[in-house]
Write a protein that binds this DNA or RNA. Structure first.
Lengths: 179, 179
DNA sequence: TATTTATATATCAAACTGATATATGCGTAA
DNA sequence: TTACGCATATATCAGTTTGATATATAAATA
């Protein structure tokens, strides 16, 4: 149990809130966890199978509206495994921004192209910010209703503050390249 | 040439500034690019060999102070390849923060452990911030000396602003969990 | 009615990490 | 002076993950 795989823990974390299919897990990751985590089907489905073999989740195969699907539920052993991971110190926080990479080497290609990358980045961030602001507003409203809401709020607040800083930086960055 | 590997472009970017050994490339990535990119020896050395085979870099094997080493230099074809990548739109900017993942699932384990993760995060950021502030100060001073300095400044400025926002968030986050 | 989108799962080559292995030089503390 | 640890320098590989592709059905939409 010493070498917890990240994917194991993300999936068990989501299943600790509610039982889900692999497809639904992917959707949760792509919406709620989007701005600080990602995962592909190619890791989700094999991980679910190995979690099942290790007794950390149980499968329930059903047919819903003519479509076959498998609903996964966390077991007590799975909850224990998740808790053991949660108390371990963080091993890696990683920012991997291709935009910054292209900016760093920007002198090779000039300001026009580089400003273009900054504008693309700005557009993307400004498009995603309202979702984070909405989440913060909503979570602050329902914060007292359930303990978990405060924890969700922490991450949404992080995203909101950071994205606003990104937008401020875009303004400064454009000025530096134009001036 | 349509499917540029990221590692190819990072290495060619660094070599566009100066000729380097694989070991020195790793050092540059771990210091200058640290807060927005990373790479392991396991990808650097194989990539250098494939770049050599593709004629994008040249090898110079020398013996320095009794130690054998290989110095890599970018070719004209390599510069062209780099430029072609620089104009392409960014495909992925990714934040992958285990800290936020543990916070999101924090209700499973409680505020004490979660505040511990925030404190660890705060300590790490406060430790790295002075390096970024120093880089910004230095680059602003020598900005006019060389065109490339403005581009380095953009990335250092990004890091400085974002890290300061992280520290602000830590204060808020602790209050939310304590209150 | 036809086409697109959403649901649902599976697979795999290619890329990358993290660990491990090997070997030399250089500084320093016993 | 000699033993130890650290920096330099390269190489390899199992395990993990991505991104693409494939398959099939239901629901929505044009």
């Amino acid at each position: 149990m010493a070498n917890e795989k990240k994917m194991d823990c993300v999936i068990l974390g989501l299943l600790s809130h509610e039982s889900l299919t692999g497809y639904e897990i992917k959707k949760r990751i792509d919406t709620t966890l989007k701005f600080f985590w990602s995962a592909s089907f190619g890791s989700i489905y094999p991980t679910l199978n190995s979690l099942d073999q290790d007794g950390l989740v149980t499968k329930l195969e059903i047919t819903d509206k003519g479509r076959d699907k498998v609903i996964y539920t966390i077991t007590d052993a799975g909850r224990e495994y998740l808790k053991q991971w949660l108390v371990l110190p963080v091993t890696k926080d990683e920012l991997r921004y291709e935009t910054l990479l292209k900016l760093f080497f920007g002198s090779e290609i000039g300001p026009k192209v580089t400003i273009g990358h900054i504008l693309d980045f700005e557009t993307k961030i400004k498009c995603e910010l309202p979702y984070l602001e909405g989440a913060v507003r909503e979570l602050k409203k329902i914060q007292k209703e359930e303990e978990a809401h405060s924890y969700y709020l922490l991450t949404a607040l992080f995203g909101e503050k950071v994205y606003k800083t990104y937008i401020e930086w875009c303004e400064e960055a454009k000025k530096i390249l134009e001036g």
